[in-house]
Design a protein around this nucleic acid. Sequence first.
DNA 1: GTCCCGATTCTA
DNA 2: AGAATCGGGACT
Length: 178
Amino acid sequence: MNKLPRSFFNRPTLQVAQELLGKILVIGKTSGRINEVEAYIGQNDPACHACRGKTERNKAMFGPAGHLYVYFTYGMHHCANIVTEKTGFPAAVLIRGIQPLEGAEQMEKRRGRKDHLANGPGKLCIALNMTKKSHNEMDLCGKSKDGVYDDGFVPPKIKTSPRIGIREGLDKKWRFYF
DNA sequence: GTCCCGATTCTA
DNA sequence: AGAATCGGGACT
């Protein structure tokens, strides 16, 4: 399996988002195939956390591509994104769903159930044990095994829709899944 | 310092 | 349809 290099993420976000579908996200001893993502792009995207500028929370989005942007929301959930585009341009791809591969048993334990292990951004962070404290700003293109891998899998026809759970920017169909 | 609400999830 | 639950960010 090839680990995706920083150059993969340092490209237009919509392209990165679609090409992430079918790739394998590895975090610690758990992994899964990405099957749902959303793009959040820059200061002109009203749904993007960075639309009103750089803050302590969203600063990872302004950093180099290939790093994680993990944030805490609704008082109880974490969501994980992979930063895209050049340093200084705030954009990222939210990972909304994966099909569990390695460590499924561990994921079942963390989730406390055997189904719906990682079919949502909050659930996925629980399954992979990702938190803001431990994973925000982590580099996925470094020496560590954590990262995104290509095993040659080609996803079926990609579907699109408006992004989930937002109030503005519903005109953009930046959710991709299969 | 205060106030409002969220890129969610689960249950009823 | 509604609750759970708390930190960030906009604003006083």
